[in-house]
């Protein structure tokens, strides 16, 4: 009665990929697991093996390089490790004259300045990326997006110079003076307004990682499938709700990746921070006070480190920075990996 014509094969339809005859007999093997070798299978297999060998050895080389660096640094910092042990990490005395070394102020400075940078840069970057991908018209968005990426390519010494000549005077005479006068009773704004210091370092780092985080987030936002946006729209979501529900949620692993890259740059940034942080190995709760970071102390003191223990202590600082970077990256990457794995669409 009802003549049936089930037409599953359509342009772009996923069924069109199923080979004829796949519906009879046992289920067909997966695409790459066919038992019969394809024509010319052997040579293609060899090519695969060679390809795998070459790429594998590259990967191995990178691993070797990292392990080698860690080993060399560990050996070179042995004198300091033997002398100070764990104390090195919790002591805040850095006194080359007495040959006493503790890295805590640098650890503190690196972590705090990077944290400040993230605190400022992440919301701003996400705002920029959201605006460019969801709200701005196509063409201006492309141009602005390109400019943002360009910012990421500016050498850090230029950021440093700009910081010294423009940002620091502005900070000193403007917000810092005000904070110091009116909110100086709060520990985080205590002390005189020098201009240079933790706040300046955090700000410059924020400006420097802003393009990285926005550019990657923008890329990630643009990769969110239209089906996701339409799903939200079809539920009666406004534009902002669509962004929150479909875009930000879908892009979460990618955003995390962008933040990690930004963090990586902030942790290791040397030149601009050295020019702006004040370079005083002290731990202060005040954002107005000068500080010091691991990267800065290495850059500043390496050439004048004459004593063996001094040099060894500096190398141990490098080792700690190295370890910290690896640790944070592995931790964050694990986070990304687990969210991506969780979010992987099986459909």
């Amino acid at each position: 009665m009802i003549a049936v014509s089930d037409k599953p094969i359509r342009a772009g339809g996923r069924r069109s990929r199923i080979p004829p005859g796949a519906f009879s007999g046992p289920p067909p093997p997966g695409p790459s697991q066919g038992k019969e070798p394809a024509a010319g299978g052997r040579s293609r297999f060899n090519a695969d093996a060679i390809f795998r060998g070459i790429t594998g050895s590259f990967a191995g080389f990178v691993l070797l390089l990292v392990a080698g660096m860690a080993t060399v640094m560990t050996i070179a910092s042995m004198p300091a490790i033997r002398k100070f042990g764990w104390h090195f990490l919790v002591s805040s005395t850095w006194d080359p004259v007495q040959d006493q070394y503790g890295a805590l102020p640098f650890l503190f400075g690196t972590l705090l300045s990077s944290f400040l940078a993230l605190l400022i840069a992440v919301p701003l970057s996400l705002g920029i990326a959201t605006f460019l991908s969801e709200l701005a018209p196509e063409r201006p968005a492309r141009i602005l997006g390109f400019l943002v990426e360009l910012l990421a390519a500016i050498p850090s010494v230029i950021y440093g110079l700009w910081g010294i000549f423009v940002m620091v005077p502005m900070l000193r005479n403007g917000p810092q003076a005000w904070l110091s006068a009116h909110l100086g009773f709060l520990p985080i704004f205590a002390g005189p307004a020098y201009g240079v210091g933790m706040m300046a370092a955090g700000l410059i780092l924020a400006i420097m990682i802003l393009p990285t985080i926005s550019a990657i987030s923008l890329e990630v936002f643009r990769a969110v499938p239209r089906a996701q946006r339409e799903a939200a729209l079809a539920l009666g979501a406004t534009r902002w709700e669509t962004t929150r529900m479909a875009v930000l949620s879908y892009a979460r692993p990618g955003i995390l990746g962008a933040v990690i890259l930004g963090l990586g740059r902030a942790l290791g940034e040397t030149m601009a921070v050295t020019m702006l942080i004040g370079n005083r190995p002290a731990i202060s709760a005040s954002l107005l006070a000068p500080g010091y970071t691991m990267a800065s102390v290495i850059a500043n003191e390496f050439s004048e480190a004459t004593g063996d223990l001094y040099l060894s202590a500096l190398i141990e600082v490098a080792l700690v920075l190295f370890g910290l970077t690896v640790l944070l990256n592995v931790g964050a990457r694990y986070l990304v990996w687990s969210t991506v794995k969780r979010g992987e669409n099986r459909a």
Binding site: P225, A227, Q228, E230, A231, A232, L233, A234, L235, G236, A237, T238, M245, A246, S249, Y250, R252, P253, T339, R342, G343, E344, N345, A347
Partner: peptide, 29 residues
């Protein structure tokens, strides 16, 4: 926006929000 709350839609390819839980997916709208 108001209209779409009266007229729901299901798409050709399932498009749940992948990073949301089952619960949050159902309650999203």
């Amino acid at each position: 926006v108001r209209l779409r709350r009266d007229v729901g839609m299901v798409f050709q390819r399932p498009n749940p929000f992948p990073n949301m839980s089952v619960r949050d997916n159902v309650l999203a709208g």
